[in-house]
């Protein structure tokens, strides 16, 4: 893709981000497997260590900070699997990223149909 500019509030998940995010995304990919989810919940720190997450990634995971995970190279498709472990859906995750409550975020989605 020819990257011609920056879109505010958007992090383009490209090659360099995929390189940076590889350990975090690989860990989240393992959450496709019930045993992976169980092992993470049993001992988060150990599980992050096993996949070689960077300090930035570990801290973002610990804080459940979605924006920080994205900035650390997380891909939303894999972070969604992490959100699933936490019992969060994509509206909850939308709220977390935009500083809205889930209900406010849902109302924001509805408003865009009224334009």
């Amino acid at each position: 893709m020819s990257q011609v500019g920056h879109i505010p509030g958007n992090i383009m998940f490209d090659g360099p981000m995929a390189t940076k995010g590889y350990p975090l995304n690989k860990m989240c990919y393992s959450f496709n497997n019930a045993n992976g989810r169980k092992a993470f919940l049993a001992n988060e720190d150990d599980y992050c260590e096993r996949f070689g997450l960077s300090l930035e990634q570990k801290q973002a995971v610990k804080k459940r900070d979605v924006i920080a995970m994205l900035e650390a190279g997380g891909s939303i498709y894999y972070l969604a699997k992490f959100a699933g472990i936490l019992g969060l859906n994509v509206q909850d995750v939308g709220g977390l990223q935009t500083g809205m409550t889930t209900d406010e975020f849902k109302a924001f989605l509805v408003q865009q149909g009224e334009k």
């Binding site: 505010p8 509030g9 958007n10 998940f13 924006i67 990223q97 975020f105 989605l109 865009q112 334009k115």
Partner: peptide
Amino acid sequence: HQLDGQRAGFINKP
């Protein structure tokens, strides 16, 4: 649709 970032929730009906 946009799932990620501060721009999450962006939809463009037109």
